[in-house]
């Protein structure tokens, strides 16, 4: 999906925080991009419809709203059907924020990833144990994040 220079300029504005020194931030973004506010609304609406923009809104800092422990649960599942079952079990917990299937390697047998944000590490362990019991998948690990080197939204252009 090649973007025009104008579209790249719009992405460049929207990938940052909107202008905060005004009650009319879209008007200011449109001005910076050299278009009308109405044209900007049309582009945002189009991108939302196409799923290019997932949402307009706030990205929160998790630790500050009480979600402290970031753990990556990784599971060795035998096939796609089982992966779906384990993913469904994981997703029934509100603490699971992302769930992906990824390739495995000889040195890394785990092919299903469930990202957790829990208030305690014990809660992370409890969820993993319950999912294991429910699905019969016993080969799993919990990788606690012990240091955050970087966490920010991607800048595309």
């Amino acid at each position: 999906m090649p973007l025009s220079e104008l579209e790249k300029a719009i992405v460049r504005e929207l990938q940052e925080t909107i202008p905060l020194d005004t009650l009319h931030p879209y008007e200011e973004i449109a001005r910076r991009c050299g278009i009308t506010e109405e044209e900007l609304f049309q582009k945002i609406t189009e991108w939302r419809r196409k799923g290019i923009i997932r949402r307009m809104g706030a990205v929160l800092k998790h630790q500050k709203v009480g979600k402290v422990f970031n753990a990556m649960s990784v599971w060795r599942v035998p096939d796609r059907e089982k992966a779906r079952e384990v993913a469904q079990a994981l997703m029934s917990y509100k603490e699971i924020t992302h769930c992906y299937e990824r390739p495995s390697y000889p040195t890394w047998p785990y092919n299903l990833f469930g990202m957790m944000h829990c208030e305690t590490f014990e809660r992370c362990e409890e969820i993993a144990r319950e999912v294991s019991e429910k699905t019969g998948i016993t080969e799993y690990r919990l990788l606690l994040s012990t240091k955050e080197y970087k966490k920010e939204s991607l800048r595309y252009f």
Partner: peptide
């Protein structure tokens, strides 16, 4: 609030 703006789908971009 860490950021207030658009959340893009990286793949769709």
């Amino acid at each position: 609030i860490r950021r207030l703006g658009a959340v893009f789908d990286t793949k769709k971009l």
